[in-house]
Structure formats: structure tokens, C-alpha cells
Computed example of a mutant assay.
Amino acid sequence: MEALDSTPEVRARMSRQKSRNTGIEMALRSALHAAGLRYRVHRRPVKGVRREADIVFGPARVAVFVDGCFWHGCPEHATWPRRNAEFWRVKIEGNRARDHDTDRRLADSGWLAVRVWEHETVEEAAARVDGIVRARRREPAAKKRGVAAG
């Protein structure tokens, strides 16, 4: 789908937006590594689910997604462009729906999707991810898969 009404300047700026290895993503990975956590980057956590997480902690079954405030419709910082408004509303709402579907599909497979907004401080985001990963590593495997113990 193309932004029909956008100016050449807007199209050029949008085409330069990185979708991987963004500044916040690199800083978060660095902080997590410094905290002693090891992970994979840009992987599909679940076979058959064509969604790639930014950071994947396999044994803990945690998939981290670093979401841009504009592209994913941040509740704090979302902006709705006036030019070609319908196109952008459909695009951003579609991204939100896909994110929700991804979270559900991962949860159905025993994974936890963690969403980090680009506006979050690296320290806060790293501490949150670190706590989640370490807690899930301590959980019995059956609980992570959603199997009742006993």
C-alpha cells in the first residue's frame, strides 16, 4: 500500500527509517548483555508464525519487540498525520492489530511477548526485560508451556 498523497520529502524520510538495529534496540541489547543475559536477535520465536522478534531468549521463551511510537501507535506519543490521514490510520491500526495477534500466537505457544516502546529509557526497559527473563528461567518448564502441574 502506497501513501498516495505524501510529498517526495515525506516518502524519502519514511524510506530511511530503520526497521532493525535501531538506536534504542542496540542500546537495549547492550544493556541486557552487560547484565549477563544472552540472546538471539531478529529471530522467529515460533515455527509457523511469520513474525520476527527483535530479541529472543529461547530457554525462557521470551520475545522482545522494540516498537516505534509512530509506527505502532504508542498510547502516549502516537501522532496522526493530517495529510493522507486515512492511509496512516489504516496502516498504524493494522500494525496494532498485527502486534496483538503476534502476542496471542506466542502466548498460545508458551512464549511471552514483551513490548518495549522507543520512548522508554534503556535502563527501565532493560531492568523490566531482565526481571521477566530471570523469573521465567526459574519457572518449571510445564508452567511455561501452559501445562498444569500435577
Results as ranks from 00 to 15, higher is better:
residue 122 V to N: 09
residue 38 R to G: 07
residue 56 V to Y: 14
residue 96 R to G: 04
residue 113 A to Y: 01
residue 63 A to W: 02
residue 124 E to C: 09
residue 71 W to A: 00
residue 65 F to N: 03
residue 106 L to T: 02
residue 107 A to P: 03
residue 74 C to H: 04
residue 34 A to V: 15
residue 91 K to D: 03
residue 116 V to S: 08
residue 104 R to N: 00
residue 78 A to I: 12
residue 104 R to C: 04
residue 99 D to I: 07
residue 116 V to M: 06
residue 51 R to M: 12
residue 84 N to E: 05
residue 68 G to E: 07
residue 101 D to W: 13
residue 32 L to D: 05
residue 92 I to P: 12
residue 92 I to Y: 15
residue 49 V to Q: 01
residue 120 E to T: 14
residue 72 H to Q: 03
residue 99 D to W: 08
residue 103 D to A: 15
residue 75 P to S: 05
residue 75 P to G: 06
residue 62 V to W: 00
residue 90 V to N: 10
residue 116 V to N: 06
residue 96 R to E: 00
residue 55 I to N: 01
residue 56 V to I: 06
residue 52 E to D: 03
residue 76 E to A: 13
residue 80 W to D: 12
residue 99 D to K: 13
residue 58 G to R: 03
residue 53 A to R: 01
residue 58 G to C: 04
residue 50 R to N: 05
residue 109 S to Y: 04
residue 77 H to A: 09
residue 89 R to F: 13
residue 79 T to E: 09
residue 125 A to D: 00
residue 113 A to L: 00
residue 65 F to I: 04
residue 103 D to L: 04
residue 98 R to S: 10
residue 85 A to Q: 14
residue 38 R to A: 09
residue 122 V to E: 05
residue 103 D to T: 15
residue 37 L to I: 13
residue 60 A to S: 13
residue 60 A to P: 04
residue 103 D to C: 13
residue 115 R to M: 00
residue 78 A to L: 10
residue 40 R to F: 09
residue 39 Y to M: 07
residue 52 E to N: 05
residue 65 F to T: 04
residue 120 E to I: 12
residue 125 A to K: 09
residue 94 G to F: 05
residue 44 R to Q: 13
residue 117 W to H: 08
residue 103 D to R: 11
residue 86 E to F: 02
residue 64 V to N: 08
residue 74 C to V: 03
residue 95 N to P: 11
residue 112 L to F: 01
residue 76 E to S: 14
residue 37 L to N: 12
residue 71 W to C: 04
residue 46 V to C: 09
residue 35 A to N: 15
residue 51 R to S: 12
residue 97 A to I: 11
residue 34 A to F: 15
residue 56 V to E: 12
residue 103 D to V: 07
